[in-house]
Nucleic acid binder design. Structure first.
Lengths: 168, 168
DNA sequence: AAGGCCATGTAACAAGTTACATGATTAA
DNA sequence: TTAATCATGTAACTTGTTACATGGCCTT
């Protein structure tokens, strides 16, 4: 039983709560894990096909708008449980702005400031959104808490940046 | 002139400082950008081949231990400058532990605590390493500052976790 | 001379991205 | 009736990962 990738596993996780179509799953994932685990629409359909292939989910009948709900199987539940029992691997951050800063000796100051400001606005916005987010489970509160800490850290760091970059 | 991906661009960035072999570049990248932009050895060789193809670098003569140094060309410098002029896209975080927590309703408490503790130790270690890191340029200080803020944020968040996960 | 590290690279595959195509349904 | 959105999926490509293969150099 070769194990699942985190994206496929997450889909199985959501399917524990009920039957969903690919379209639904994209939305649910975006909402619930999108801030720390991105996935694209085409990936979801691909993984659903793979999960079906492996017998971890079953596609229901095609309904209105050719909508098809997927149901998790017992094998799927087993695979998910097994995935959850394996220690999660370290996180990965890919932060292009940090590359720009790392190579900042080749960027003129104004442009760099603009890039940073643009990012700052995005992070301020996300922080505001997180602060308005309504959670219903401890799990949601726990993941949201990470988002809050993270966004605050980024903003604090950005506050320090001008001094770090002007001093020699 | 289709633009560069951040990995290829970074290689060009490093090659501004001198000629390096693929092997060297892997090490330099790991050291200077590895904390926020991961790349694998085989990727480096692949990108070097692609950059050579496009005329952005030139492979020198094969030396001892079949070592070959790459030199950036003027076209490569142009391409790099152009890449640097485009606003960097938003960062991506992929944090499997957060998935585990998000699906924490299916994980028993002890296991989850162990996962979290293991991560905590890693983050404490990284924070310690960052604190001991010697920087020589403002750019290095700026990117390091992000690492410090980030690791501290993760640890602070982990401090909050038990309360968030036990309360209902 | 043997073992470990230096240094290259390839091959195969998995995962992620972008763009497009199709058609149904709903709301204006 | 037209536009927007729902909902599916495919195709083509790029990126990322893992594993392996090869051989030279350096130290013991």
């Amino acid at each position: 039983m070769p194990d699942l990738n985190p994206t496929a596993a997450s889909l199985l996780g959501f399917l524990h709560e009920g039957d969903f179509s690919g379209y639904d799953l994209v939305r649910v994932a975006e909402q619930l894990i999108g801030d720390f685990w991105s996935l694209s629409q085409s990936q979801v359909y691909r993984e659903l096909a793979a999960l079906t292939e492996r017998g971890y989910v079953e596609g229901g009948e095609v309904g209105a708008r050719s909508k098809r709900r997927y149901r998790i199987t017992d094998a799927g539940r087993d695979a998910f449980a097994q995935w959850l029992s394996v220690p999660p691997s370290p996180e990965q951050i890919r932060f292009p702005l940090l590359l720009t800063i790392a190579f900042g000796a080749h960027v003129d100051r104004d442009r760099l400031s603009r890039f940073i400001d643009d990012h700052r606005r995005e992070h301020e916005k996300r922080l505001r959104e997180y602060r308005e987010t309504v959670t219903v489970t401890p799990q949601q509160r726990a993941t949201l808490a990470f988002g809050l800490r993270y966004e605050q850290a980024v903003l604090d760091w950005m506050d320090d940046l001008p001094a770090l970059l002007t001093d020699d």
